[in-house]
Amino acid sequence: MTESERLRAALAAEPGHDVRAREWLADALARIVERPETVGRSFAAAGRTVGRAPLADAPDWTADEAARALLLAALPPDRVADEAAALYRYGDANEKRAVLKALPALPVGAAAVPLLHDAIRSNDARLVTAALGPYAGHLDQAMWRQAVLKCVFMDVSLATVDGLAERADAELATMLAALAEERAAAGRSIPDDAVALLTTLTGEKKDA
């Protein structure tokens, strides 16, 4: 089952996904295949039609995010990267987040890395979080570490960072330890999950 099939099934299984929402989505998808330039208006309107609640069968996705991922996946493959960049550039925060979450399943290679950089530069935890999904495999290690550290700084749960255990390294441990030290000097602490990560990283280093 492809990611699109999974999201489509999860949307269809929602009690709130009524005839109107179903028909709207089917029409929008058919229109994008014929006239890809229609994706912008459909992308903006998705939440008003399919709703914004989390999906029971795909709990990491809301209905509007899933619908937007389907709209992106319906684009001709040679236009996806450009359209995704434009939809992100002119998107509101929910649209931006949907683009970021859809990236791993889109045929864009590493072309969308600048979108991750933009999201990580923001101070919106919803965007920083969405930038650290599976597509963050395209980020270089230095940027990825900074993004993880930013999550800790913003009190965003590290559970949302894809592949954290595999990718966390000694340099990240050094950075986390420095933040912990700075916080301790101010009588504050770092979040529990960051403490746990630091313990794991420094423990592994001792074992090695």
């Binding site: 101070n123 969405a130 930013k150």
Partner: peptide
Amino acid sequence: ARGAEPTFEGSSILRGGG
């Protein structure tokens, strides 16, 4: 609360940003 951990309610802004 949407798309965010309830634990960081207010924090990133009240602390002056990331």
